[in-house]
């Protein structure tokens, strides 16, 4: 669909080559292409701006014009920069404490419940003994959904459909998990908007009481410019420990990943790559960089 960024850059540079040294002005066209590519990938407006400024500095420093393929060199520079920005290497979950409490949070429909199931499945396959806690009291059939997933993967689910209090349910779930010697307890929560004060207070209270070791912010990879607002607010309220990027089996370029990383600076720990319980992967910054750049 989109033209290869590298070709575009090569072409932009070709125009420049005849003009001798690189000046601020003749780099502008190239930078415009880069910025557009980033914005088309849903990288946040401000992030795209500061990133292109940095790349521009680098390009002026390296003598890009004398390179055989300036577009190639520049895309490599960008790829390296992006990879570094998205956090050099893979960050593992902290599972030292027994039981490890993991709280799942995010917007409506992001993929939290599905991820909770996938994570339980993943940890089970690594020899852990997880318990899922059905903490969404709002969405119709949210509890059934988690119970069905639990059954599919053979992981127990704590639920209390009579209760409407997510703090109480989380605490009951933890007690149940301790009783049954579960060494990981994963708490699913209802989807909520960052500007919904009441709902944000509620999840802050769940955190307060359960003292989770990991709080994972689940976000749809197709999210646009709003990703920064949401991530910022959730992080301010929860100080989450990691990000989960879902639905990457689609064809979105996933610029939200970069935006989130740049505003909250928390590691992306997992990616969702399908609806099945096995469709979970660790996050590779370099692959994400190439994807955002459309390569």
């Amino acid at each position: 669909m989109f033209e290869n960024l590298q070709d575009k850059l090569d072409r932009a540079f070709k125009v420049l080559k005849g003009q001798g040294s690189i000046t601020e002005i003749n780099v502008a066209e190239t930078m415009k292409e880069i910025r557009k590519a980033l914005l088309d990938a849903d990288v946040n407006y401000k992030t795209a701006k500061s990133f292109t400024d940095e790349v521009k500095e680098k390009a002026l420093g390296l003598n890009v014009l004398t390179a055989v393929s300036p577009g190639q060199l520049l895309t490599k520079v960008m790829n390296d920069e992006l990879t570094a920005l998205m956090g050099g290497e893979v960050t593992e979950l902290d599972l030292k404490t027994n039981p490890t409490i993991i709280l799942i949070a995010g917007l409506n429909g992001a993929g939290k419940t599905t991820f909770a199931g996938k994570l339980a499945n993943h940890l089970k396959s690594k020899g852990k003994k997880p318990l899922l806690v059905a903490g969404d009291m709002y969405r119709p059939a949210a509890v059934d959904q988690l119970q069905i997933l639990g059954e599919q993967i053979g992981v127990p689910v704590y639920a209390n459909i009579a209760s409407k209090d997510p703090v109480a349910i989380a605490m009951e779930g933890i007690a149940e998990g301790k009783k049954n010697h579960n060494n990981v307890i994963i708490i699913d929560t209802a989807g909520r908007l960052a500007i919904d004060e009441e709902m944000m207070n509620e999840i802050a209270a769940v955190k307060e009481h359960t003292k989770p070791h990991e709080i994972l912010f689940v976000v749809d990879a197709m999210t646009g410019q709003d990703a920064v607002n949401t991530a910022k607010t959730f992080n301010e309220r929860l100080d989450f420990t990691g990000v989960v990027l879902t639905k990457l089996d689609g064809d979105t370029r996933g610029g939200a990943a970069l935006s989130i990383k740049s505003v909250v600076n928390k590691p992306i720990k997992f990616i969702g790559t399908g609806e099945k319980m096995e469709a979970l992967d660790v996050f590779y910054p370099d692959r994400m960089a190439s994807r955002i750049l459309g390569m």
């Binding site: 197709m222 999210t223 939200a256």
Partner: peptide, 11 residues
């Protein structure tokens, strides 16, 4: 379409 979706909504 989810109102928070970015440019992927085109596709």
């Amino acid at each position: 379409l989810d109102g928070s979706t970015g440019q992927n909504a085109f596709e």
